[in-house]
Computed example of a mutant assay.
Amino acid sequence: MTIAITNPDGLHAPTRFGYSHVATARGEVVAIAGQYASDAQGGVAAEDFAAQVELALANLGTALRAAGVDHSHVIKLNTYIVDHSPERLETLARHITGIWGDRPPPQTLLGVASLALPGMLFEIDALAVRG
């Protein structure tokens, strides 16, 4: 099996954190690493939960486009929310609906105590398929 690992322009260099942004298997399956509200150096660029969700989803879009796919190719999402609450779920749902409308992909949401970096409140990863 051929696997291509890439780190697209427009996203921070992640290898110092021990991961890459995109893996493509056999040219068809695309795995996108957890995207968060990162700045160009990999730091957290926003403090507000809604702003973090918006920026993380923008970064997800950047990674998808770099792999030659878009949101319509996503078949699975995993989301991670620090201090999960109904209000945070509502914020996430509003952003997801803004992208996928009434046909969002399957999603697993995990409420977590913390994420990789101080100040991270949200992270999202995705699995997409070309074609």
Rank of each mutant, 00 (worst) to 15 (best):
I3P: 03
A4F: 06
I5R: 08
T6D: 09
D9Q: 14
D9N: 12
L11H: 11
H12I: 04
H12W: 04
P14R: 10
P14Q: 11
T15P: 00
F17G: 00
Y19T: 05
S20G: 12
H21A: 11
H21Q: 12
V22L: 06
A23S: 14
T24I: 12
A25M: 14
A25C: 14
V30K: 08
A31G: 14
A31M: 13
I32S: 07
G34F: 00
Q35W: 09
A37S: 11
A37M: 05
S38F: 11
D39C: 12
Q41V: 10
G43V: 05
G43K: 03
A46D: 03
A46N: 02
E47V: 11
E47L: 09
F49P: 03
A50E: 15
A50G: 14
A51E: 14
Q52D: 09
Q52K: 09
V53Y: 05
E54L: 00
L55A: 08
L55I: 15
A56W: 04
A56K: 00
L57G: 03
A58L: 12
N59S: 02
N59K: 06
L60W: 09
R65G: 08
A66H: 01
A67Y: 02
A67F: 03
V69I: 10
D70T: 07
S72H: 01
S72W: 02
H73I: 01
V74F: 02
I75F: 07
T79G: 13
T79K: 03
T79F: 00
Y80D: 02
I81C: 05
V82Y: 11
H84Q: 15
S85Y: 02
S85C: 02
S85D: 04
E90R: 13
A93K: 15
R94K: 15
R94H: 13
I96P: 04
I96Q: 10
I96D: 08
I96K: 06
T97D: 10
G98S: 13
G98N: 12
I99P: 05
I99Q: 04
I99K: 05
G101Y: 06
G101V: 10
G101F: 05
R103K: 15
P104G: 05
P104K: 07
P105C: 08
P106Y: 06
Q107Y: 04
L109S: 12
A116D: 13
P118D: 15
G119F: 04
G119K: 09
G119L: 07
M120T: 05
L121T: 06
F122C: 01
F122H: 08
D125F: 00
A126R: 01
L127R: 11
L127A: 11
A128D: 03
V129H: 12
